[in-house]
């Protein structure tokens, strides 16, 4: 599903990531850890082709990501749901319209029943017509998660999704991501919250990828 072959990424003559080779299989659940500035976000951006590697090859869904057109990048993004720590929305549209945005972008018809069900799943039924600025941090994360999965992507990537929310909300978000994984989605979560990782390990088989010294190391009891 996602394959890195001896990948490196750097800028300004300095490598941020180097010699990264790994394969993320369909339906797997991964945590990505490492100190701040280690390159977690950079790694994730390489996974959804926000960045292009300076060396090596990345294959997403069997397609090499180097020298592909912008339209092909857009097609890849439709198969990948992304949740950022600082969720970005179109502030002049309602929460429901923001969540439905990927459908409009892909030219797919809106199924109101599905949307309503999705909003209930993330606990935002009552906030559908609110503007993004009116949401709390946890609500924004859940809205971003709903937007990320409305197209039923094969991969869900979350970059520090619990960074701005309390522990109860973190667990709730984690539960949603675990449910997605049980539905067969590949999940990658960047976090430095070890409690969250331990909480997930008790419910689902996870792999922990640790970035250190510009390289990715696998860690954990399941290695």
């Amino acid at each position: 599903m996602i394959e890195f072959n001896n990948v490196a990424y750097g800028y300004g003559g300095r490598d941020l990531l180097t010699e990264i080779s790994l394969s993320l299989n369909p339906g797997s659940f991964h945590f990505l850890t490492g100190p701040s500035g280690a390159g977690k976000t950079t790694f994730l951006k390489l996974c959804y082709r926000e960045l292009e590697p300076t060396a090596g090859q990345i294959h997403l869904f069997g397609q090499a990501t180097r020298d592909i057109t912008r339209d092909q990048v857009a097609e890849l993004r439709r198969k990948t749901g992304v949740v950022h720590q600082d969720c970005k929305f179109l502030d002049h549209l309602s929460v429901a319209e923001n969540i439905a945005m990927p459908l409009s972008v892909a030219g797919k018809p809106m199924d109101v029943a599905n949307l309503t069900e999705l909003m209930a799943w993330v606990g935002l039924s009552e906030r559908a017509d609110a503007l993004p600025a009116e949401l709390s941090g946890g609500e924004r994360q859940r809205a971003a998660l709903a937007r990320a999965v409305i197209m039923s992507p094969d991969v869900v990537i979350a970059d520090e999704p619990t960074g701005n929310v309390d522990w109860d909300m973190s667990l709730r978000l984690l539960q949603l991501l675990i449910e997605l994984n049980r539905m067969g989605k590949t999940v990658i979560i960047a976090t430095h919250d070890m409690h969250l990782i331990r909480q997930a390990k008790s419910q689902v088989q996870t792999r922990v990828l640790r970035i250190a010294n510009r390289r990715i190391q696998q860690a954990g009891v399941d290695l």
Binding site: A96, A100, S104, K108, A128, D129
Partner: peptide
């Protein structure tokens, strides 16, 4: 179901640029 806040996907496209 009635979702007045959500018109159609066409109107979303028409409104993505802040007015």
């Amino acid at each position: 179901l009635s979702l007045p806040f959500l018109k159609t996907d066409t109107t979303i496209h028409d409104r993505i640029v802040p007015p």
